[in-house]
């Protein structure tokens, strides 16, 4: 429930369908070239990647130049954007641009960690459930369904409310632990369809161990699918973190895009018409997450020739 994606939306539908099995026979290099060839010619993938890359570079490269704390009172109060303060200043004279680039940092970090943890849990649960089957599958399925139905955000609100040491790491961990179920489900389904393929049978007959089969035979054959799942989890984690920060449950000392919106609303930026305070953080999140989703559509077209426009 993490990602605000619609199932069957950007998630590759029957992704692994035709490709991987045969691809092994064809030989990896040729397929790799082909993937790159189509990737470089996919406008959705390229446009999304460019937006994400620009924001990522801004997040990584700009803060060192600014120096000082993004929360420091450095300028006149409540100034609209100017040559000196590109995104204007807050009620207290903080530089909105400095907050924005620092906020981008935590946004990417939460996406990476939260999405990464969710992907890890989802993969482990999905692989094991799909490959082992039987009782293990039943139990894991039950757990998945329970976590799936629980509204993740609301659980996180409760947990964060009691938690006094709220850092970005803890936040990511919690987000990761609540937003994996749909990924686990999808990966389980893919694993099930791969587990009956000849090359997996062959590996099993030759006495390979389960984890070796999963990581050497099954996972590589759905790597594109896993990557796309991770992208969706990444976007979902960002949105959840923004929501928590907006309620005021984010890292108390930090800077984040959600927290910026929280402060803007708390200090009447709307009534005062200080649009430069609340437009950039939301726009930043929308741009990152939206670009990730659109990238995913592009990736889907690259990996599944069936979807390519002709």
């Amino acid at each position: 429930m993490s990602a605000q994606q619609v199932p069957g939306g950007p998630v590759p539908g029957e992704g692994v369908g035709a490709g991987p099995g045969e691809a092994a026979a064809v030989g990896a290099p040729r397929r790799g070239n082909e993937t790159v060839y189509f990737a470089l010619r996919n406008p959705k993938l390229l446009a999304g990647a460019v937006v994400v890359a620009v924001l990522l570079v801004a997040a990584l490269a700009v803060p060192p130049f600014l120096g000082g704390s993004p929360n420091a009172y450095v300028g006149p109060q409540a100034q609209p954007p100017s040559a000196e303060f590109w995104f204007g200043t807050t009620n207290f004279g903080q530089d909105v641009f400095a907050q924005f680039v620092h906020g981008l940092r935590s946004t990417f970090l939460v996406g990476l960690l939260g999405g990464g943890i969710a992907a890890l849990v989802g993969m482990v649960v999905g692989f094991v459930a799909g490959y082992r089957g039987g009782l293990v599958d039943e139990v894991l399925n039950m757990i998945t369904n329970i976590v799936l139905v629980l509204p993740a955000m609301v659980v996180l609100i409760i947990a964060a409310a009691y938690l006094e040491a709220r850092g970005i790491l803890v936040q990511s961990l919690f987000i990761g632990l609540t937003s994996w179920p749909w990924a686990a489900r999808a990966i389980r389904a893919q694993t099930l369809s791969l587990a009956t393929r000849d090359f997996v049978d062959l590996a099993r007959l030759s006495g390979r161990r389960a984890h070796a089969i999963i990581f050497r035979e099954i996972a590589p054959n759905m790597s594109s699918y896993l990557f796309m799942t991770f992208i969706l989890l990444f976007g979902g984690a960002i949105l959840i973190a923004a929501g928590l920060d907006f309620i005021g449950l984010g890292p108390p000392q930090g800077v984040s895009l959600g927290l910026m919106m929280h402060s803007a609303v708390s200090w009447s930026a709307l009534q005062l018409g200080m649009w430069w305070w609340f437009v950039p953080p939301g726009l930043g999140i929308t741009a990152i997450v939206g670009s990730l989703y659109i990238m995913n559509v592009g990736l889907d077209e690259v990996f599944n020739p069936r979807l390519r426009e002709t």
Partner: peptide, 27 residues
């Protein structure tokens, strides 16, 4: 529709609320 739809789903709920409150409400 495709890009607009993806941007809409990628919009944080509260941000769209803030924008609407500001534009249609306050301005």
């Amino acid at each position: 529709v495709l890009p607009v739809g993806y941007l809409l789903t990628a919009t944080p709920y509260m941000w769209l609320g803030i924008l609407l409150a500001w534009s249609l409400g306050i301005v």
